[in-house]
Each structure stands twice: as structure tokens, then as C-alpha cells.
Design a protein around this nucleic acid. Structure first.
Length: 105
DNA sequence: CGAATGACCAAGC
DNA sequence: GGCTTGGCCATTC
């Protein structure tokens, strides 16, 4: 577990229910604006201690390009938090996007 | 240290 | 708006 990983997890934990963020934003807060890939790689590795399901790509969709991560489960979690998810795992990111108070972006 | 990998991002079609 | 190409970066071998 590197410092980068801990920082990413700490940031993700701050995401409120019913909101979602992109990997790029988390990477930015972690101090590595271009390391969005590592963020996703780290998230699929732990359990419910961190709301990883609230983290999606900048296109507003749940990526399924890698190993069989529970994309279907993630959709269930989001809908439980009043976040509408399309059949193709698409989310209205423009409306549900959460902006971290620290950056104010 | 060099090469390969991955839940990405931005630009081009 | 969706698919394809190239590029970034940290971690692992």
C-alpha cells in the first residue's frame, strides 16, 4: 500500500451518498492529475469500507474493460443511492457529479 | 533500471 | 453522442 493509494482511498471516502466522481478528479486530489488509471486499479481491490461504486470514468460510464469486476453490483449500489443508471451502465454525470469542497472546482 | 500492464483521458472520425 | 488511437503514470516483474 503506497502513499498514493492511501490518499486515493481517503478522498473516495469523502464522497457523499447519491453523488459520483470521475477517476480523473480523484487522481487530481491525490496529487497525480494524470494517474486516473491507478485510481480505478486501486478501488476494485478493497471492500465496502470505501464507496468505490461512486467512482466512474469521465464519460459517466462504468468501465468493464478489465477483469470481471462487479459492474452489475455497482449499478445496484448507485440505484440504491437514488442515482439513475442506464442499461448500458451510463450515468447522468453532469447532474450527479460531486465537486470536492477543497478544490471548489 | 527497462519493459509490460491497466475500473483512464483527450482528441479525431 | 459513441467508437478508435495515442499518450500519461504508478505499480509490478
Amino acid at each position: 500500500m503506497s502513499k498514493f493509494s492511501e490518499d486515493v482511498l481517503t478522498i473516495v471516502k469523502q464522497i457523499p451518498s447519491g453523488k459520483v466522481v470521475s477517476y480523473g478528479q480523484v487522481a487530481l486530489l491525490a496529487g497525480h492529475p494524470r494517474a486516473a488509471r491507478q485510481v480505478g486499479c486501486i478501488l476494485h481491490f478493497h471492500g465496502e469500507e470505501v464507496p468505490w461504486w461512486r467512482v466512474i470514468n469521465n464519460a459517466g460510464r462504468i468501465s468493464t474493460k478489465c477483469i470481471e469486476h462487479n459492474a452489475d453490483l455497482q449499478r445496484e449500489f448507485l440505484r440504491e443511492e437514488e442515482v439513475e443508471v442506464g442499461e448500458d451502465l451510463s450515468v447522468d454525470i453532469a447532474f450527479y457529479r460531486w465537486y470536492f469542497p477543497e478544490t471548489g472546482s
